[in-house]
Amino acid sequence: MDTPTVTLFLALLAVAAQAIVVGAVLLFVVGRLSPAARSLGSRVAAEVGPQALGLAAGVAAVCTAGSLYLSEVAHFLPCRLCWYQRAAMYPLVLVLGASAVARFHRIRPFAAAVALVGGAVSCFHILVERYPNLETSSCDPNNPCSIIWVEKFGYLTIPTMALSGFALILVLLAVARPSEPTTTAQEAP
């Protein structure tokens, strides 16, 4: 697959991530008012919750793979702010992956803190792309943070995709929960 195909693929995944995040937030907010929405939210959380750590690790893995493709194959040089986001995203693959395997749910607040920091950097990076004078009034010839390497659907740039990944990881961490125990009835002796 060539670069335009991969970037469109990543952009579509980012759109899907945004849709899931918006849906989750809507369910949460409307669930405060509507018992039906609350019930639906609970059912979704019960379905996704036990798998959420693994899914979050998968999201981090896709973001990491995408970022490595863009820098190592497409040769889009990562800027300083890109590196900060990478520093937040890359460890999440291992941390969340290992926690999912070990069913170590107490990792959630720590992973969420890392994802929050990464998401905050993504937000600032998006602002710098839209308002380049926030950083400086001229472009570093090598690799300014304001350069837009990819722009899909008129708004999806690389940090926007990263923010989508961080946001989805946060949602998944919010719903992550250990598998609910079920009891298997046995006949009395």
Partner: peptide, 16 residues
């Protein structure tokens, strides 16, 4: 009397 505890298997649907 209840027997051994088993986790619910919901994973495959989500992953699919």
């Amino acid at each position: 009397m209840t027997g051994p505890v088993k986790p619910k298997e919901r994973g495959p649907i989500v992953w699919y």
